[in-house]
């Protein structure tokens, strides 16, 4: 062990730092100066990507406090999940600026609060994440907490979750 550590040490002292990204031709992604988001590979946009049909009428949008309330709920859900030891690792190294925007758009679209959804579909956006049922439950708990903090009635919370629960097949991959 000691010898190995010593060897590593002398090596790193002896050689100049290597830019491995450059060595392997990895392009460094840059955040868009306006939106603050990283670019993503092109995909076909459409409300169908949201994965659920929106509610009729304005009752649900009202129950969630309109676009302002929905934005707070989407942001809070992402922040709670990033800080949640059960699932933080899944969110690490993903673009939370984009996720907050797209999650807001999706919620807003489904709640019929006057948005279009511009993100990817649920299968494409979760295919490499390795989400399990227990991770899904953790996210649901964080969303429930975010909704509770915005005083969304429990019945309305469940009505919304009823739109999301059937997406489990696309989100849960193991």
């Amino acid at each position: 062990m000691l010898i190995l550590a010593a060897a590593l040490l002398t090596q790193s002292v002896a050689e100049p730092p290597v830019d491995w990204d450059k060595e392997f031709g990895v392009e460094e992604k840059m955040r868009d100066p306006v939106t603050g988001e990283f670019p993503v590979d092109p995909y076909v946009q459409g409300d169908g990507n949201a994965g659920a049909k929106p509610f009729d009428g304005v009752a649900m949008a009202d129950a969630f406090g309109g676009q302002a309330g929905i934005r707070r709920i989407a942001n809070r859900t992402v922040e709670l999940s990033e800080a949640d030891p059960r699932i933080a690792a899944i969110f690490a190294s993903h673009d939370m600026v984009r996720l907050k925007r797209t999650l807001f758009e999706q919620f807003c679209y489904i709640l019929n609060a006057g948005c279009i959804y511009t993100g990817r579909d649920m299968t494409a956006s979760h295919k490499d994440l390795g989400v399990r049922t227990r991770d899904m439950n953790a996210l649901v708990e964080n969303l429930q907490r975010a909704m509770r903090e915005e005083n969304v009635s429990f019945a309305a919370q469940n009505r919304f979750l009823a739109k999301l629960a059937p997406m489990s097949g696309a989100v849960i991959t193991r």
């Binding site: 049922t133 899904m136 009823a162 629960a165 059937p166 489990s168 097949g169």
Partner: peptide, 8 residues
Amino acid sequence: GDVVYGNP
């Protein structure tokens, strides 16, 4: 089936 998830 699943009591919560999947086809409602």
